[in-house]
Each structure stands twice: as structure tokens, then as C-alpha cells.
Design a protein around this nucleic acid. Structure first.
Lengths: 202, 202
DNA sequence: TCCTAATACGAAGGATTGCTCGCGTTCAAT
DNA sequence: ATTGAACGCGAGCAATCCTTCGTATTAGGA
């Protein structure tokens, strides 16, 4: 962000530009989203765009900040409600949230996941990873003592990345013979089975 | 491929161009791999490039064909050897192959996975998906009768995409505190636990 | 050796795009 | 009402890149 918008109209314009970035990326992908497209969709000129954003990438960064804040907020408000649930229920709740977020704006979700691996997505994944770690500790806090010693960072990495990517590809591919409900069920089975096994080592 | 290379020198040039495409993509990503870069690295001129490839995308398609053929060949020759193994051993072998393929050319593997979601990667994923389905049926063929009825396409989709993406992100992120051995172990636990549970429904 | 087709070359065309700059307009404090 | 700052505009600059085309070089059969 180059300059801070002071008057009301400019703040409104900045919001419109970020939203236009989202819509344009959803339609044409990040590579196809030119500054002219974004400005036109926001109903402003490129000159105005460059008064508040240093570059095209800056526009993307602002959008990513907005989305990240929303998702983290969503996770934080869900955490207390799943603290008391069984691992299986808690896992299912988290997966449901992930699917909801994915379907909220499918096109944007798909475009971000596929194009932006390089730009800020790594940081994004790290944050999700941290949250997954917290969630794991929370879910398992009651029985943590009897838990088979495990490599928490590895498990968190595997679960967060695997889940996000499977859901991403589900929305971007729309594979034949795969329904959201079935995928949710199998993922729940996969993860809860994994944990139950770790809880009662044979 | 626009024209078929007849003489030896042109066939050699076509190979050099595909290899140069791989090296350049590995270095600069698909977007950063210009035709001039690729031609220069192959030691030919852009004019020669366009004599055998219709476009820049055609170059990519040729590279993808080469890689896909290699990986499918690798899978096919591994299939018989794992047919008799237990599910856990078979799964571990497949995961080891995946890791080997990933580390064979890390930079290229990462670049292809991150940049090329749109171009031919979907087809690539479908093929892997099909192979995972076959592998599942093969691994479980002995005890298939007693297997809990399951949604095979969904399971295959979940397993193939989840695994490929976790391994991709492992190589592209190099996350702290996560080793290849640990990840291999946890993935094996995750999947074999899942199958064992399905085999003995509670 | 000669000749034709295959091969190789690279400067230039044509198109796109991120970004700047000078000028006109609107707001708000005085 | 006035004035200075904030705001908004869009044509055009500069750079990049894919692709073509006319020309030069080479291979291999006659």
C-alpha cells in the first residue's frame, strides 16, 4: 500500500479495487488479471489504482491479507466449540469448515490455489499449518498423556497440506463419481482412524 | 509438433530443446521460461525451435509427455512386485516411489506442480488417479470380498491427490522439523491404518 | 561433384502489459 | 467563497515476448 486513503471515497475505491481483484482473478486467473481489467471492473482508472497500490503484486497481497484474516477469524471462533468434542467429531467439524470455505467462492479459491503457489501462498500455508498444530493439541489435550509419541510438526504438515490440497482439487476438478459428502466422510474416516490407532497402539 | 525431424541432427535438437525446457522451467518457472531462454540453453536459435514446435505451449506438452511416460513406466514395472505384499508394505513401496520421483529433479517437480495446474496437469492427475485405483484393487484383491463397501473413486481421488500434493509441498517448502523419513512413516501409518480399519469394520 | 531438400539462423514485426505523468476535479478547513 | 491538498483520470512510454520470414548453411543421394 503506497498511500493511506484519507477521504471516504478513496477508502471505498480501495475496497472496490481489492474486490475487483478477487473477481478478476476468479475469472481469468492471476496471470490474466491485468491492471486495466481490475481497474475497469472496479470502475476506476489505472492511475487511481497506482495511487494506493505500489504494484500489481501489492494488489494481490492486499487480497490475500483480506482472505487470510477472514479464514483465521473463522477458525478462531470455531475452536472453542470443538474443544470438548471427541476427536472424530472435532475432525469432522474442521473438515466441514474447510469445505464451506472452499465453496464460498469456488472460482477464487481454485485460482488462488493453482496460480499463487509462489506469491504469499507459502506464508498462508504456514499459518494454516500452525493452526492445525494448535487444533491437534486442543483435540487431543485430554488424552494427550496416553498418546503414542509422535512427530507433531510432521503430522500437522501432512494433515493441513493434504486436506487443503484434496479439497482444492475437488473444487477445481469436479471429478466424476466423487461427491462432497462422500469425500467428507472418507476424509473423516481417514483422519479419525489414524488418531484412534495412535491413541491405542497395538 | 509441427514437423517431424528426419535427419539425425534435428532429432538431437528436438531432444535438446525438450531438455532445455525442463532445465529452464526448473530455474525460472513456466512463466519465466521464454522461448529465447529455452533456445539459447539448447544452443539453437528460436527460428529452429519454431520449425519443430508449433508454439511455446507445444514445447511444454512435449515435456509433459516425456515425464508422464517415464512415471507411468515406473509405476507399471513396480506393480507386479507389490502385488503379493501386505497392504502396509505395498503402500510404503508406492510412497517410496513417489518420494524418489519427487527428489529426482526437485526444482522441475516443484515448478511443474505449482505453475502448470492449468496446462495438462489435470490430465496428468487423472492418469495418476486411475493408477491409484488400479493399485488399490490390486493391493486389496485378496481380501476384497470382506472389505467394507467403499466408494472407490472417492477413495482413489483422496489418496492420489492428497499424497502427490503433500509430497509436492514437502519438496517446495522444505518445512522445518519435517524430514522425508518421518513424513514417509506417518503417511504409511495414515493410509495403512485407514485400510486396516476398513478391512475389520467395528 | 552437384543439387535439392532439410536444417539452422536471428533480426524485426506485432501485440500485450505494467506503470508514469501531467492535468483537471472534488473535498474540507478557514 | 477561497484555497490548498487530496483525489481521479487515461493516453502514452518503455519493456517484454511470441512468432514469422527471408536468407544462409548443411546433409546425402545421384
Amino acid at each position: 500500500m503506497k498511500k493511506i486513503p484519507i477521504q471516504g471515497r478513496s477508502r471505498q475505491m480501495v475496497d472496490a479495487l481489492v474486490e475487483a481483484t478477487a473477481r478478476t482473478i476468479a475469472e481469468r486467473g492471476w496471470q490474466g488479471a491485468t491492471t486495466n481489467h481490475i481497474a475497469a471492473r472496479a470502475g476506476v482508472s489505472v492511475g487511481s489504482l497506482y495511487q494506493y497500490f505500489e504494484s500489481r503484486e501489492d494488489l494481490l497481497a492486499a487480497l490475500m491479507d483480506r482472505e487470510r484474516a477472514r479464514i483465521l477469524c473463522r477458525l478462531e471462533e470455531a475452536m472453542p466449540s470443538i474443544a470438548g468434542d471427541s476427536p472424530r467429531i472435532a475432525i469432522r467439524r474442521l473438515l466441514e469448515i474447510a469445505f464451506e470455505e472452499g465453496s464460498r467462492d469456488e472460482a477464487l479459491f481454485t485460482a488462488i490455489s493453482s496460480d499463487l503457489q509462489a506469491l504469499g501462498a507459502a506464508e498462508f500455508a504456514d499459518i494454516l499449518n500452525g493452526y492445525m498444530l494448535d487444533a491437534l493439541r486442543l483435540i487431543l489435550s485430554q488424552r494427550y498423556a496416553e498418546f503414542t509419541p509422535m512427530d507433531a510438526p510432521t503430522v500437522a504438515f501432512m494433515l493441513s497440506n493434504g486436506t487443503v490440497m484434496v479439497i482444492t482439487r475437488y473444487f477445481s476438478q469436479k471429478p466424476k463419481g466423487v461427491t462432497q459428502a462422500a469425500l467428507l466422510g472418507e476424509l473423516t474416516d481417514l483422519y479419525s482412524g489414524y488418531f484412534e490407532r495412535k491413541l491405542r497402539p497395538s
